[in-house]
């Protein structure tokens, strides 16, 4: 199954998100109260590594393994980024989670959190 590799990448990602505690409501509160560097460190270093990686992929003209040109993520600006962003921000501070952590039980955009509170999803 060609999607198996994504399952494996996802598993690694899920372990990292859990072990970094970025799925913790408390960590998110700490971040929005500017009382710890943890979340800023995680997000900042992730962006730095991601940006350097993309820069190198472009510089060396690396192809995807199937030989195709890599399609880099393009996110054009529009006003929806502001409105949607603010709405997500409200929800982020309430639930202490973003879609990675709470993608499990979502029905039509209504997301219920698991009662087993340490579960990341």
């Amino acid at each position: 199954m060609k999607n198996l590799k994504y399952l494996v990448f996802g598993m690694v990602f899920g372990v990292v998100l859990t072990k970094a505690e970025v799925i913790s409501w408390f960590r998110i509160q700490e971040m929005f109260r500017f009382q710890s560097f943890h979340m800023y460190g995680v997000i900042g270093s992730a962006i730095l590594v991601g940006a350097i990686s993309i820069g190198l992929l472009k510089k060396w003209n690396v192809k995807a393994i199937d030989g195709q040109n890599i399609k880099f993520p393009v996110k054009p600006y529009n006003k929806a980024a502001i409105y949607g962003g603010l709405i997500f921000g409200f929800g982020w501070a309430l639930t202490g989670a973003c879609p990675g952590p709470i993608s499990r039980s979502s029905v039509m955009g209504i997301v219920f959190l698991s009662s087993r509170s340490y579960l990341p999803c």
């Binding site: 949607g84 955009g109 997301v111």
Partner: peptide
């Protein structure tokens, strides 16, 4: 909260 996350994103 979940709705705001889902709708907002």
């Amino acid at each position: 909260g979940g709705f705001l996350v889902g709708f907002g994103t």
